[in-house]
């Protein structure tokens, strides 16, 4: 596959390491009342869509950026690639 890196353009997916669902960005608040349940869901419960999927890829043999890649799991078509840091900020993560 070829992943269009937002900074570096098209790159062979060989250069990347795959992690999984981009929801891993949404790490729960440890002090929330139901923190144990939320962490359990965060870590173990995943959707497994046949179709569009947002997922985390690490440009390990590249610029060390984590990317959020929107990919169709059936056709492998990649419709969007973002820097994970930007996605994290947009989802309200900070420090």
């Amino acid at each position: 596959m070829i992943i269009p890196h937002p900074l570096l353009g098209p790159r062979d997916s060989q250069e990347f390491t795959y992690l999984g669902d981009a929801d891993l960005i949404d790490r729960p608040d440890w002090q929330a009342e139901n923190a144990a349940d939320r962490f359990y869901e965060y870590l173990y419960l995943r959707d497994n869509p046949a179709g569009e999927h947002r997922e985390l890829w690490f440009h390990e043999q590249g610029d060390r950026s984590w990317l959020v890649v929107t990919r169709d799991t059936v056709t492998h078509e990649i419709s969007k690639v973002e820097l994970a840091r930007d996605v994290a900020r947009a989802r309200g993560r900070s420090k």
């Binding site: 690490f58 390990e60 840091r85 993560r93």
Partner: peptide
Amino acid sequence: AVGVYRHMEFCRQCLWPDM
């Protein structure tokens, strides 16, 4: 070594992007 570095980059970029 490689896995820990990758994990740290994940924490830095995806969990706490403004640190």
